[in-house]
Each structure stands twice: as structure tokens, then as C-alpha cells.
Nucleic acid binder design. Structure first.
Lengths: 208, 208
DNA sequence: GTCTATATAGTGATAGAC
DNA sequence: GTCTATCACTATATAGAC
């Protein structure tokens, strides 16, 4: 994991990624990126021409990472086991990318252009719609089987995303307001992971 | 609701509030505030000295509004009825202040100073801790009575806040990505309100 | 109380030397 | 490929006329 062998372009990319994740697009300057990368500000523009360009390159990768995790294929076990593993993986991915939810939320809320970009390039993607369709079919089957209550697929997704993402959105706030140290923050994440899985499962189990 | 009788100071305050809610602190300029208020940029500084000062005045009121709604006293009906009404009121308040969650989240995540400020001035407030303590007692009672499953008060609160807030955080994204019009966005909020209440109730009902 | 003008510092981006 | 220097612009904040 040594950083010594990165060339200048990669250094800039890495520094930019760190700063965009910490402070968002508009609060990060190309001067600061250059400083952290250990080079001159002009070089940032030499390699990426515009700050917007640099950001988009990073943002696209992050969105991809963000969207693909939950949609992962899970075939072993019953529906509840699969849901538990899916949510678990989502939590684990975000544990390793704690600032990711804030970056994505922030940029999408602040910029209609980025929302439109996401719709055209990610949501209207055939493969992704196929994955959604498969998940929807899986749910309809479970409802018919009587294992879960009638629920809209979209609602289930939003429930999971809300509860999971908010854990990481609120992490710096909860951390400072409740004066948690690093270790306690990690415990908080694991605690929420359990609680979220529990709540989601309870929320979809069929009434008796 | 006429704006014609506002004096300059109030006009500035109102314009600033609108802009801060739309774009956050750092993306809003005093020049823009002045322009919307229909006055000169120097006047913004005449009345509020600094932009930070102006922001804090607005922010404090918003935090107060944000914190007080869920903690409202509800005495009629059983615990589930009370929870339903609490969540409903929370949704209704945010329906009338749709950008509020984003503003608060954004500024608290981006600024440690603001997090510290909240901790010292709002969380360590005796009255508010009293309210939390009462809610906690209410929950412990229900657990003992066997009406709800064992759950930590803080988890229940985070569950409600996650699900409620995310509805409004995601509203512009969901709206544009799924190409919803104004009416459909309102429906989405009401739909989520029902689903969130349902999920929370299912999530705390005691196992049989 | 309201204005114009301005001081000061920062921004993104480019030109041009090496 | 990397640097310095600089342009055009915008920001916050203040001084001073009226």
C-alpha cells in the first residue's frame, strides 16, 4: 500500500479523491489538491484540464461502487438469510468508504446536472434495470409464497438504503456530539448493522 | 403572507435563509443574499457584520425547530398510537421544511465547530436531556409490560430519524432520477410516511 | 440607514520558460 | 512534464460619502 511509486497524475487523483470525500466539490480547491499531491497547481490543470473534469472521473467510479454493492447476487439460503447477507455487505463496503454516502448525497442534492447525469448513465442502464427486475421478481415470489408481507420492492430498497446510509451520514455528528472515540465509532457501526438487519427482517416478515 | 412590509434587515434574513437552505453556507454569497433582498451587499454586513454571524442566527432557529418536533408530548392512546402520531408530526413538519434536513446534515458534517456548538448548546441542555429521559422511561415501561420488544431507546430514535430524514434528503434525487413531478413528489412523501410508520411499529412489536 | 468604492485574498485556468 | 507568473473573476469585509 506504499504511495511512493505513484506518478504525479495518480498522486493528484488520489489527493483529489481524499479532499472531495472530506469536503465535497465546491469546498475543495485545485491549489489544495496540488499541495497535498506535492506538486504545483498548474499540473492539476495540465493533467485534467478542469476541476470539474477531475471530479467527474472520481465521481463516476464512486457511484459505480455505491450502486453495485447492494445489487450483488446472493443465491444461498432463504430470503431472510439473503437479505441479511446483502445488508451486511452493504454495511461492510461503507465501513471501508465512510465518506462515500455524504459525497454522493451532497453532490446529487446540490447539482441538478449531476442528477440528470446519473439518470441517463446509471439508472437507464439496461443491466441495472435487469438486476432491479430480478430483485422485484424475487420479492413477488416471496409474497406469493407467504414468507413476507406485501411490500413494494422500491420501499424495501429505500428502507435499507435509508437506514444504512444514515449510519454513515450521521457518524461524524454522533461521534462528536456523543463524544465517541475511534473504537466507539466502530462499535456504533457494528451495533447499527445488527439493528438495521433486525428491523428490516421484522419489517417484512409476514403477519400471522 | 405578504413580504412587502418587511424592513431591510428582515428581508436580508429571509433571503439568506432561503439561499442557505437551497445551497448551504459556503455556496451562498453575501452578494447573492443582497441581490435577492433587493439591497446592496454592504448592507448585509452592516446588519450582521459577518456572513458566519448571519448564518448562525438562522441555523440556531432551524436546529431548535428540528430538535423539538419529535420530542413533542403525546399522552393519548397506547404506545403505538403515540409513536404513529409522533412520526406523523415529524413528517408533516419536514414536509413544510423540506430542505431543513439537508442544511443541518450538511453543515454539521462539514464543520466540527458546528458539531461542538450543538453538543454544548443543545444536547447538554437540561430540559432536552429530561425529555430524552422521559421517553426512555416510557420505552422501558412498555418493554416491561411486554407490548414492545427489548430495544435501546437510542436505536429507536435513530431508526425513526434515519427513515424520516432520508425521505427528504433523497427527495430531489428521487424526483429527478425517477422524473417525478411536483404532485408525484407529494405522493411520494405521503407514501413514505405510511411505510415508515408501518415499519417502525412492526419493528418494535413484541414477539409472540 | 443606504449607497459606492475599494482593500485584500482567494479562485480556476492558461501562457510560456525550461 | 514541471515550473513560475499572471489573467480574469469572485469572495468577504470595510471606509467613507450622503
Amino acid at each position: 500500500m506504499s504511495e511512493t511509486h505513484l506518478n504525479t497524475e495518480q498522486q493528484i487523483l488520489q489527493s483529489a479523491e481524499e479532499l472531495f470525500l472530506e469536503k465535497g466539490f465546491s469546498n475543495t480547491s485545485t491549489t489544495e489538491i496540488a499541495k497535498r499531491a506535492g506538486c504545483n497547481q498548474a499540473l492539476v490543470h495540465y493533467y485534467f484540464r478542469t476541476k470539474e473534469n477531475l471530479f467527474q472521473q472520481i465521481f463516476i467510479v464512486k457511484i459505480e461502487l455505491f450502486l453495485k454493492t447492494f445489487m450483488i447476487e446472493e443465491n444461498e439460503g432463504d430470503f431472510f438469510t439473503k437479505m441479511e447477507r446483502r445488508i451486511g455487505l452493504y454495511f461492510d463496503m461503507l465501513s471501508n468508504n465512510r465518506k462515500l454516502p455524504f459525497l454522493i448525497l451532497n453532490e446529487l442534492v446540490l447539482s441538478k446536472e449531476r442528477r440528470d447525469f446519473i439518470r441517463e448513465n446509471f439508472i437507464k442502464n439496461e443491466g441495472r434495470q435487469q438486476i432491479y427486475y430480478m430483485f422485484d421478481k424475487e420479492i413477488q415470489n416471496e409474497i406469493i409464497k407467504g414468507t413476507i408481507r406485501p411490500i413494494e420492492t422500491f420501499d424495501l430498497l429505500i428502507n435499507v438504503v435509508s437506514l444504512t446510509i444514515f449510519t454513515f451520514l450521521s457518524l461524524p455528528i454522533v461521534g462528536d456530539v456523543l463524544e465517541k472515540n475511534k473504537e466507539e465509532k466502530n462499535e456504533y457501526i457494528l451495533h447499527r448493522k445488527k439493528e438495521v438487519i433486525d428491523l428490516i427482517i421484522r419489517g417484512i416478515k409476514a403477519d400471522n
